[in-house]
Design a protein around this nucleic acid. Sequence first.
DNA 1: TTGAAAGCGCTAACAA
DNA 2: TTGTTAGCGCTTTCAA
Lengths: 341, 341
Amino acid sequence: MPPAVPSPLPTETVSISAVAAHAGVSVATVSRVMNEQAGVRAPTRDKVLASVAALGYRMNHLARSLRTAESRMLLTMVPDVGNPFYAQIVRGIDTVAREHGYFVLLCDTGADAGRERSYFDLLRMHRADGAICLDPDTVQHALSHESVSLPWVACCEFDPAVAVPYVGIDNHRAASDAVAHLLARGHTRIGLINSDERYLYARQRQQGYLDTLAGAGLPVQPQWVHTVQSLDYEAGTAATLRMMAQPGAPTAIFAVSDTLAIGVLSALRQLKKRVPEDVAVIGFDDIAIAAQIDPGLTTIAQPMRELGETAARLLLQRLADPAAQVPGVLLNHNLVLRGSA
Amino acid sequence: MPPAVPSPLPTETVSISAVAAHAGVSVATVSRVMNEQAGVRAPTRDKVLASVAALGYRMNHLARSLRTAESRMLLTMVPDVGNPFYAQIVRGIDTVAREHGYFVLLCDTGADAGRERSYFDLLRMHRADGAICLDPDTVQHALSHESVSLPWVACCEFDPAVAVPYVGIDNHRAASDAVAHLLARGHTRIGLINSDERYLYARQRQQGYLDTLAGAGLPVQPQWVHTVQSLDYEAGTAATLRMMAQPGAPTAIFAVSDTLAIGVLSALRQLKKRVPEDVAVIGFDDIAIAAQIDPGLTTIAQPMRELGETAARLLLQRLADPAAQVPGVLLNHNLVLRGSA
DNA sequence: TTGAAAGCGCTAACAA
DNA sequence: TTGTTAGCGCTTTCAA
């Protein structure tokens, strides 16, 4: 027997004026009570609250937003929600946003530039008060427009030369730390699996890799750096297979993301190479799975949640005072040693 | 040198009346043009369009929403965005939503019941037109309220006895398939690592496990089924360590999620057990990482994107015609054989 | 084919 | 302390 279905209330929208009528006060008073403003006598407030409860009144935020010209939504644009790295950042953003009474409108930009551009329209259409952008394409796109005046901040991916608040890490130094570790382990033939060069972080990490190698007086072999178009596991596998097929293949591989690095491990397994004995592997991000696989993945940890939290805070700060000079902030990374390198 | 910063336009909001004035027509006409309604002469329309372009007009959707009483937002409540399983479903939802001109408001409910309840308010406050709920607690909570009249659908987690549209898989049969596979491989001591029993899917899968064992005439040892409170890798590891410490420990383990199963693998490695020789492992979901680890994880694949897409479609259907009888739909799962079992 | 005008539900002056 | 009222920007009858 199907359970008793609660009588589907007519979903009649109870408006503020209905409450006012029911309580025998004006809408202004109801509004004051709803917004917890001072200047309402306790008995009056109680009367209103009673009516609110009796009628089951819920404020229509659409109307409020129209009136106050704010939506209390924060747009978050991410290249790929499925990537654990971004997922953690999103959680950080969400935490701070909620604390401040904002909701997060999450947009997966994929790799679609059209989509990216259209999302910025949400800002102009007042459907979101501000945006956090983790997507390089969007950012780049944004630059050519009037975007500098729009309330948004950059997270992870940013260009310090542009007048937009940002939070991220020192990618150059982080990459350098990774390569230095490999060097210290005695490797001299070190491969790089980098993501698309349109990503600023990709260019910075590559530079860190290059500079550190040069600093050690080591020649850089162009065939040791491979670029991939996505951060999927498969991309890492394919790149590794290509890289290792060459004569004089590297004895160590630095992948610019853990997902890529895990793909590298797969490839190495296929090739019957032992890790780290035959080939050492180091990743980037320190996503949760890095600690689970065998061997554990040595990697550069990014403070993911903190990255997201900081981004949200910067944005909120900017919203609170549009004139304020919101700074760019760099968070610390650190090398996490596990079995793979 | 910092790049030339585009002059920060005063962000003066261009309203429909500004366009009307500029074009020398009424706001009604502008509205008609914006909504591509018939009954506007071409020259008039062109004039309006020209003004729209000249002024850089963007419609304020807040105002439209207030007027039309729809927000074009779809609420999606998920227990954990960080879980790759949910992430894929979200992508599916997003795809369909965008196709239909909706945006997705993603809410991570965590395990917080208070948060869950409050999200449903978004519906009542007209900040979202409908909701897709992947979270059991929210669902259960919803049942006690007037929720049946609210426009929402259940995804993955659902109760067929409740009059709410849903999409999911046949968890009982899927679990049965998993256990049958283990049985066919000759295992008779099969452990279950299940998630919290407040999850309907957990109860269904456990029943599938129990029934299949019973069907094979095998006794069920209570100490072989362990319940965990989260789907983290660590939870799987801890449960396995506990389970394997017992005398007469299982030779095969069925974990109700791949994340848990990966934790199982970690534990087994710690215990120096070979997989699948000493202990076979089978997971559930078939998230991307399942194919990357070593040994590959044998698992029950769920059509994640399709689950999300279907959920979105059901919801849209329900929104389009609130009176329509929207069905519950069950999608197919299938057993993916890899190295672990 | 176009326009005038009445709201959608709310907030915030301004009055009382 | 409370009420009146004018919009926020849009859609949508109803008239012209």
